[in-house]
């Protein structure tokens, strides 16, 4: 294993622990608890939600999707900024102009979304 891969070993340990703990918890409970199931006990339960199958009964507003698309667009934009910032000292003015053009094009969309009221919920 090369050294840079070895630095990811903590993530591997973390993943193993994350897999073990819930499995161990469920296994311990099934060994220790008394088993007297009733239909009420087996029903899905979530705090404050009346119907456990609400997600299947209602379609969600398209507003959520609009917000999600805008999130992805600005997410990608931010990711483009990161390598640019890392190499800024070598890209110099060329890189700055390049990034300003990139951002200017996206600001057009941002202003459009803002003025159409896509950023407000109501």
């Amino acid at each position: 294993m090369n050294p840079s891969m070895a630095s990811y070993l903590p993530i591997l340990y973390f993943a193993i622990m994350a897999a073990i703990i819930p499995v161990a918890g469920l296994a311990a409970m099934s060994l220790l608890r008394p088993s007297k199931p009733t239909p009420t006990k087996l029903a899905p339960y979530e705090c404050g939600v009346a119907s456990p199958t609400e997600a299947f009964d209602h379609r969600f507003s398209v507003r959520y999707y609009l917000i999600a698309v805008l999130f992805v667009v600005f997410d990608v934009e931010t990711i483009f900024l990161f390598p640019w910032a890392v190499m800024y000292h070598r890209l110099k003015l060329f890189g700055l102009v390049e990034m300003l053009v990139f951002l200017a094009i996206l600001v057009v969309g941002y202003v459009y979304a803002w003025r159409r009221g896509a950023l407000s919920w109501a």
Partner: peptide
């Protein structure tokens, strides 16, 4: 930012199209 300058700038146009398209259809 040096070798693929044009595709990088075109990417911003793609993002713009996605954003405006979502707003037009969603609104």
């Amino acid at each position: 930012y040096r070798d693929y300058l044009l595709p990088f700038e075109v990417a911003s146009v793609f993002l713009l199209v996605a954003m405006i398209g979502a707003v037009v259809l969603g609104k």
